[in-house]
Amino acid sequence: MLVIALDNVAYSYGGGELLAGVTLELAPGSFHFLTGPSGAGKTTLLKMCFGELVPTSGRVELFGQRLPGMTRDALAGARRRIGLVPQDARFLDHLTVAENISLPLTVAGQDMRAQKANLDELLAWVGLTHRAKATPPELSGGERQRAALARAVILSPDVILADEPTGNVDWEMSQRLLRLLVELNRMGKSVLVASHDLALIRAAKTQTQVRVLRISNRRLQFAGADL
């Protein structure tokens, strides 16, 4: 079964059509990159995959359930199976970084103590162990992105949707985050990463099998082998 499917989807924010005839199928264990010029609609596409935006036409299915027909609780349940790293991640500013990262566990009603080791390991992975007690407004842009990635994966979701997850980090850290994503992908999770970072995409290609999608002229296409 496909985890996320977009079928002949179009989207418009009210003006002209931003995306049209977009078909995307994320199978379990797949690894996709999504590229395209700024303003092409990458973030918009990810938001549709997350059920945050509803397409103006076409259909979206999350885990086999059609989106507009889903109850609010079912959508919340589907979102727990999707780890989202937004382009401008927001947090609960009155909680610490560690609390924010483990928030999905709290919300899902899981026992926090049982997940303590998991949280520590994750904090180490994204290099935020020393910032665990800080609050989100005290983090740098790159630290925020890493915290967002950690928060997205702590529930061990079936899909990871990451919007420019390496936009603000140095090369070394971006390699590290990539290794984390590849690792999760090997565990069977689907990964979709929106990114301009060609070097990152090339590095990913050396580690695992990835497919590169590109939005151009409102359409979604497979990128050529030149990438």
Partner: peptide
């Protein structure tokens, strides 16, 4: 509320 929604909190 929007952050909680993002991480799959139910109403």
């Amino acid at each position: 509320i929007s952050v909680l929604r993002l991480i799959g909190a139910r109403d």
